[in-house]
Simulated assay, not measured.
Amino acid sequence: MTTFNPLRLDGRHILVTGASSGIGRRTAVMLHALGARLSVVDRDEAGLVSLGAELSAGEAVAQHVADLSDIAGIEALVGRCVDAGGRLHGVVHCAGIQAIVPVRTLQIDGWRRIFAVNTEAALMLGKCLSSRKVYAGQHGAIVFISSVMGTVGSVGAVAYSMSKAALDGMARSLSLELASRGIRVNCIAPGFVRTPLFEQTERLWDEETKRAVEDLHPLGFGEAEDVAHAVAFLVADTGRWITGSTLVVDGGYLAR
């Protein structure tokens, strides 16, 4: 007798952006292990090839190299994903730019690129999934990776915080618009998670600063798998009655 598992994603086609490393890569690995067919997107071709080798996936994973700051090109990208793997059941937008830039040195082109990848690309992906040509018609789920910085402030994170706060608000409205189509829309707001992006920031800290930041997380720094687990919960039937929410996965950071 087969035991029902609401986390299983067998037969579902999920698009994952930012899949070459960090949270995106762990998310792709997790969803693949749960049975999903994947279209993985990143601008790092070598990283995608490495991911495919890790999964030993064959036809279960289709790789697409793209720079998501090209908003106008996303519709064609999604079309290629559908052509290669069939219509989509869900989208997980993990791609993002995290930059520590003091406002006095922040340049227009810089903050617009952050906003384009973190927020505008998410909106375009949601718009694409709303199309009958793209959406498989059932089990619809969109998950955007936001940040605790969308709720609280941090020195040097003006553009990043702006992009994530806007992402949270956009997702709430999008969830209402797509509910009639059976597509759920949620965000996940991680705290500080050990990823290659975080390691770049961590190198700028001395030991005292590192301890101070880690102490802000009662459970310590997170791992990419911690966020991937939350993504799986929201994408699968375990999250079927959750929409318009931001799930905080931060080791207690916002509890202080």
Results as ranks from 00 to 15, higher is better:
2 T>D: 12
6 P>S: 01
6 P>V: 14
9 L>E: 07
11 G>R: 02
11 G>Q: 03
12 R>M: 09
13 H>A: 13
16 V>E: 00
16 V>L: 02
20 S>Q: 07
22 G>F: 05
26 R>W: 06
30 M>N: 01
30 M>E: 15
38 L>F: 04
39 S>Y: 03
40 V>C: 13
47 G>M: 08
48 L>P: 06
55 L>C: 00
55 L>F: 00
57 A>L: 12
57 A>E: 08
60 A>S: 13
62 A>L: 04
66 A>Q: 11
69 S>V: 14
76 A>T: 14
81 C>T: 14
83 D>S: 15
83 D>C: 09
85 G>N: 11
90 G>C: 09
91 V>A: 12
96 G>M: 08
100 I>Y: 08
100 I>S: 10
102 P>E: 09
104 R>E: 15
105 T>Q: 11
111 W>Y: 15
113 R>C: 00
114 I>M: 03
116 A>I: 04
120 E>L: 15
122 A>W: 02
125 L>F: 12
134 V>N: 02
136 A>F: 06
140 G>T: 07
147 S>M: 11
151 T>D: 03
152 V>Y: 05
158 V>P: 00
158 V>L: 14
162 M>R: 05
170 M>C: 02
172 R>T: 12
173 S>L: 07
178 L>Y: 00
182 G>R: 04
184 R>A: 11
184 R>W: 08
188 I>C: 03
190 P>D: 04
190 P>Q: 10
194 R>E: 12
195 T>W: 04
196 P>F: 03
197 L>A: 14
202 E>Q: 13
203 R>Q: 14
204 L>V: 01
205 W>D: 03
205 W>E: 04
207 E>H: 07
208 E>Y: 01
209 T>S: 10
212 A>D: 10
212 A>K: 15
214 E>N: 09
215 D>H: 13
218 P>K: 15
221 F>V: 06
232 A>E: 06
239 G>C: 09
244 G>Y: 02
246 T>A: 00
247 L>C: 09
250 D>C: 13
251 G>E: 00
252 G>S: 05
